[in-house]
Amino acid sequence: MLISVYVPLAVTAVLTVLAPRVARRLAPRPAAWALACIALVTTVGWAGSLALLAFTGIAQIPQVAAEGRWSVPALQAEDPVYLTVAVISALFLVAGAVGLFLAAVRQARHLLWARRECARMPGDSELAVVDDDTPQAFALPGAPGRIVVSSGMLRCLGDEEREALLAHERAHLRGRHHVFQTLWRLAAALNPLLRPLADAGGFALERWADEEAAARVGSRRVVARAVGRAALASSFRASSPPALAVTGGAVPQRVRALLAPPPPRRTFPIAGGALLLTLCCAGLVNAASDSDKMLDDAQRAQCAASITHTRTPRPEGFGHEPDVCCEHRMRAERAEHLA
């Protein structure tokens, strides 16, 4: 408990620094999956560790101890966690839970909106063209999702590039990329440390769709040109809104990646990540079982105290235990003896 409870926190910190950097060098599909696994496992580990740390503090509150029938002094004697650490953990946990709740509500509302819009688009075809000169194109997730492209965007692309654009958006829909996005967004809401990881994930999804489009049209170069042309056309008309300019670096990176040879398959970083995640899980499980044992000991201490307390005034009361918990425990101990 002393160390293992901090292992998930340490693993989260290490991965939040390393994973976004490494992910950019991997093939985008495995990278996206790896980042999704990391987000899921470290979020559980992070929340679990904070909960365990916070709980050791809460368990020392006399009212809580009375309810749980454990001894506060025994807990304090064994407890390896400073009270301030427990309080800080509890605060982080509460803030994270609130953030998670708000983000979940927002995300659910957005996804429902997208689904409604999909149904409202005219026609039942996959592609909905919007008669607008501003070049824009996006995939709207739904059941089934739709690809929305403005006529301005279609006019500024060549025949092959047009196919690349459609293939890219199709890859987003078919790969259910919005599920990945949702996972990262929620994970980052619970644990703000994961924000760089969520950004790296968004980029990996774009690259994934690019590579799938390239496989589809049979040329990575065509996709590179489509992405570049579309971005240039959009920025000329829309005079690049400042809010988007922050993420703007992504387009040249995508084009460059498409013009370079395809990324090789690497197993070493994936294996390293898997090892760290296993460590995270093991740390959490170990800390949880230690914490459980600690409570058991404290309960036993409380039980022993109450037995000695009740036995002195009532010496004939053998086999008449004062506490259900103790009776149960004594029986368990007797059984252990016999075994």
């Binding site: 654009l165 920025s235 703007g248």
Partner: peptide, 27 residues
């Protein structure tokens, strides 16, 4: 609501001026 952008998988994001130059060079 610009927040709705969150669920749109846009084909391209915005460009900074430096990005634009870089893109011209790349293409």
């Amino acid at each position: 609501g610009s927040d709705r952008e969150a669920v749109l998988a846009r084909f391209v994001s915005g460009l900074s001026e430096a990005d634009e130059q870089l893109l011209h060079q790349l293409l």
